[in-house]
Amino acid sequence: MTRAVYGLYRDPDAAQRAVGRLHAIGVPDREITVISNQPYEEYDFSKRDKSTWMYWIAGVGGSLGLAFGIWLTAATQRAWPLATGGMPDIAPWPTLVVLFELTMLFAILTTVVTMLVTAGLPRRRPRLYDPQVSDGYILVGVEREAADELRRALSADGAEVRTK
């Protein structure tokens, strides 16, 4: 039983037209998958899924790092007070260096984790994929039964239509 149908296009203009035809036959945007071996920011099909909370999440990660840094430096220095150069047990200026590094470390780690989670990585076997994408083809596909109208919409422009 086929669960997905897709067309492979040589150039992004043809892929854009295929997306347009899928819209025309009532396929909602969220069901259309476009896969390419490079980002095509100039095309409408690439404008989807652009909004993201990643910047805010990175900020939250950084704040967590800062909080962890404050706890680490304060708690450990109180647990084992070491008199150093006449400085207080929790010396503000030196502590700032550690706080800064931990803030940035957490922001970076949060960014990477958020990127992986929201991009659906890592995953074992891509659901809709064709190795020809690596050769420069652009895949436009839909994960549903390969109805005739879908095939027609995808096969215009001389694209090769495949099912999975």
């Binding site: 390419s36 980002p39 990643m54 990127m115």
Partner: peptide, 14 residues
């Protein structure tokens, strides 16, 4: 990591 190159993946990466 199972990268395919969907538009969402490209946006998130960038």
């Amino acid at each position: 990591l199972g990268w395919t190159g969907t538009t969402k993946q490209w946006h998130r990466l960038e």
